[in-house]
Design a protein around this nucleic acid. Structure first.
Lengths: 248, 248
DNA sequence: CGTCCCCTTGATGAGGGTCAATGGGCGTGG
DNA sequence: CCACGCCCATTGACCCTCATCAAGGGGACG
């Protein structure tokens, strides 16, 4: 397996969908957004409290531990990593947020953010001020339900993450992550087999609770088994069933 | 360190508070309950939708994976373990719920429970039907906020769990768990130094992602260091600062 | 009273962490 | 525009933490 190189030209280019205008009406992503049950006036009201397309460059923070929690974000394009740091400075990546994901659900109504969220590439988000959301929700109760459902789902996600860390070997964990990213790609109408890993190997290691070296070795191993084809950030899944077998 | 024995008579007995009557008004625990901001009529209205003191015996299930999600529970007394099982039957304990804890926040408004919750001892819970809660919340919006805050907190808890699993050694993890249980005891007005571990060593191992044998050995080690005094389920913390040092 | 599970302890080995070294890309500043 | 320094990714060597296997004692429960 080669190291990443800028000389390598992948045949594959991710589909870049046009960014929506500033209206929620025209946003083709609102099926995954908090607004997905809304129509007409309600959608307009919702749209009017949303700030569209805040832009982050790679490395920019969406929010940081200690920040006041006053905004919910929806990823419009790009990706983020969210992590938490303990008293000794040890860092644990909790998840990667892709297009359509809701970010920043911990700390709601509490003392502020405990986690930090950072862009992995140029990223666009919609910002929904919490106060306005809550006020609107008193008129449109389904907004409360949406938020509760998203949070419930976030709990489930983190529980699955714990399950993975607690019960699977490093190989299984990496395979599981690749499959997860593949599924999320597919759910967004993109390729199941072509992944752009904008996070570093170190980030992947942190998410999986494995050392960078271990991650690197497993990539090499998967490549040797002809299950994936990895060139730096770009990974092609060549044998998804083989990958599933390893993930189990 | 001795194995658990029924002949051993601990000097310590947990404080058993009297169970509340069927009214939320007289419940001294509602500071930690979803009702904690309510007073007067609102509290009465809340109380009227709650079924008080459902009783579970050790081993009984509060709910199981696959069950429809229609009720939120608050632990009134006793304790529960909540776990998740993967496709291969591997089990991961996600947490232990003590008096005052809200149980069953994953699966809300989704397809049902993914996890299973089981009593570790004789346990009493209040049951709050979700539909009635939501209806009442449209009149008392603070109920929505309470629930959102609890869920947000649950996300944070699980994130801290992930952080612990990902960054700490087995010794650190067990010490961290003991300190956590100690703090939660203290928050409920009970002893910081006397713990009743109603879960098995295997359960502790699962929660910490460690083998039973490892857990047992660490208990022995902590005992040898004169940091704890463990007799089966009963554990006395003799040197909480020593324990903190190990947990770091 | 037998069976099963829980807890503990010992012996052994493997999975994966750590250390070290190499090569390449990229951002910064001169 | 180039050079330097830094970070990223990979690979090899080594070793430590912890899982696994095995065995024994004790209690709970039918």
């Amino acid at each position: 397996m080669q190291p990443a190189t800028s000389l390598y030209q992948p045949e594959y280019r991710p589909i870049v969908r046009p960014l929506s205008t500033s209206s929620c009406h025209s946003c083709h992503r609102h099926a995954s957004c908090l607004a997905h049950t809304l129509e007409g006036d309600e959608l307009s009201a919702f749209g009017s409290i949303v700030t569209h397309s805040k832009k982050l460059k790679r490395g920019d923070y969406l929010y940081r531990a200690g920040d006041i929690f006053d905004t919910i974000y929806v990823v419009r394009g790009g990706s983020l990593k969210t992590f938490i740091i303990d008293e000794e400075g040890r860092e644990q990546i909790l998840g990667f947020s892709l297009q359509g994901d809701i970010v920043a659900l911990d700390g709601l109504f509490l003392q502020g953010h405990r986690t930090t969220s950072q862009a992995l590439e140029t990223t666009y988000v919609c910002s929904i001020p919490l106060a306005a959301y809550v006020e609107l929700a008193t008129k449109i109760p389904s907004l409360y339900h949406e938020l509760l459902a998203k949070m419930s789902n976030r709990i489930l996600e983190e529980e699955e993450h714990t399950l993975m860390l607690g019960t699977k070997s490093a190989d299984q964990r990496l395979a599981t992550l690749l499959l997860n990213l593949s599924e999320r790609n597919a759910a967004r109408g993109q390729s199941k087999f072509e992944l752009e890993l904008n996070m570093s190997r170190r980030d992947i290691g942190s998410y999986l609770s494995a050392a960078v070296e271990t991650v690197s070795r497993i990539f090499t191993r998967l490549q040797a088994l002809d299950i994936i084809d990895a060139h730096g950030k770009h990974v092609r899944i060549k044998d998804i069933n083989g990958l599933r077998k390893i993930a189990t």
